[in-house]
Design a protein around this nucleic acid. Structure first.
Lengths: 196, 196
DNA sequence: ATTATTACTTGCCAATTGGTAAGTATTGCC
DNA sequence: GGCAATACTTACCAATTGGCAAGTAATAAT
């Protein structure tokens, strides 16, 4: 029987199309509920991530600091998404990134140890894990090209189109650094766009 | 016994520190030699990658096309490195990238099928495979921040410092797109730097 | 060797983005 | 409700980068 409170978790596993229901049912009990209040951290730079989290409600932001110490947003996470810093979690090394709740949030977490157990027990689960990583990799490449090829205004418009929820949840200054521009420039761009 | 011609391949596996010599010895025979003449392609956009390649000699370049159809360099590969487009190789989907030889090159390749066999046979090999992916992921994140945080001149200087070999092997126009600037700008930057 | 192609540089000017600082609006807190 | 902190906008000017076009240098092809 599937715990109905874990419906989102179930669909996270199901949507990739690699796992049989029986395997998913075995995985679900390994996840525990986790609450994050607004402004609290899931991960702090310098510490080792021990949480592979599927977000159920709320919104998170990942950020790091540049050479001058300024805050730079590296990612946003919304409901149904995977919240993970792969390098720290899988390599057990201190993270360079912070992951912080933008709003009160809740989700499901599994530890490195338990996740590894699942990987070793089920070949299909390993395929699943790899697939998730590879997709993240591909998404990051997309973002890279997006930053290189598109001008700031275009980046803004595409983010607005593809992730309108980010604009509901995050302050513009965080969105600006995610887009690779200053908050001043973002403000100007918004004004330009509004004219049209 | 280890085939002495595969010494580079051996050290590729060894340097990550996750594989016992006995496991590596089992993997080596699964790799075949591959020659690439200058200008020939290891992977073409639209086709599915079937090669996980460790480069022995030569230099390769990965590139794709932006929205206007212009050529954009996404990566360079030198001796001892892994040449891989993870999304196409692992997901068996058409690649958006090309990988082309900048010089006559030679290396060792394994197919998706054989690599998977090794993964299933040895837990340590799976860890190794995951570790390689995660490192690639982390490197790409680095590059992303590098593009967001550093100005073009700084990006040029750091690439020159960390990968001087690229400047020996690739034309400046390819390096320019890799740095996210035009060849004109790169030329100007080089002039500025030379002054100092 | 000559020619054609490609690589690279330079100068000019335009477009994009950043930095600073001030002002307004909004939000959170007591 | 009132105050303080934070978020956002705007205006000014400076710095960075791009686009075009012409020129030179180097490389490849015949």
């Amino acid at each position: 029987m599937i715990d109905p409170s874990k419906a989102i978790l179930f669909s996270f596993f199901q949507k990739h199309g690699l796992l049989a229901t029986s395997v998913i049912e075995e995985a679900l009990p390994c996840f525990e509920e986790k609450e994050l209040y607004k402004h609290s951290f899931l991960l702090r730079e310098g510490s080792v991530s021990n949480e592979y989290m599927i977000l159920e409600t709320g919104f998170l932001r990942a950020f790091t600091h540049d050479t001058e110490g300024a805050d730079v947003t590296t990612n946003f996470y919304g409901p149904g998404g995977l919240v993970l810093e792969p390098a720290s979690f899988f390599h057990r090394t201190p993270s360079r990134e912070n992951i912080q709740a933008l709003t009160d949030s809740r989700g499901w977490v599994i530890t490195f140890e338990k996740l590894n157990m699942l990987f070793h027990a089920h070949p299909a689960f390993r395929e699943f894990g790899r697939s998730v990583l590879v997709k993240g990799f591909a998404a990051l490449k997309e973002r890279m090209l997006f930053m290189i090829n598109e001008k700031a205004e275009q980046r803004y418009l595409l983010l607005l189109q593809n992730n309108p929820d980010i604009f509901q949840q995050a302050p513009l200054k965080h969105i600006a650094t995610y887009l690779g521009i200053t908050d001043t420039s973002l403000s100007r761009i918004r004004k330009e766009v509004a004219k049209k």
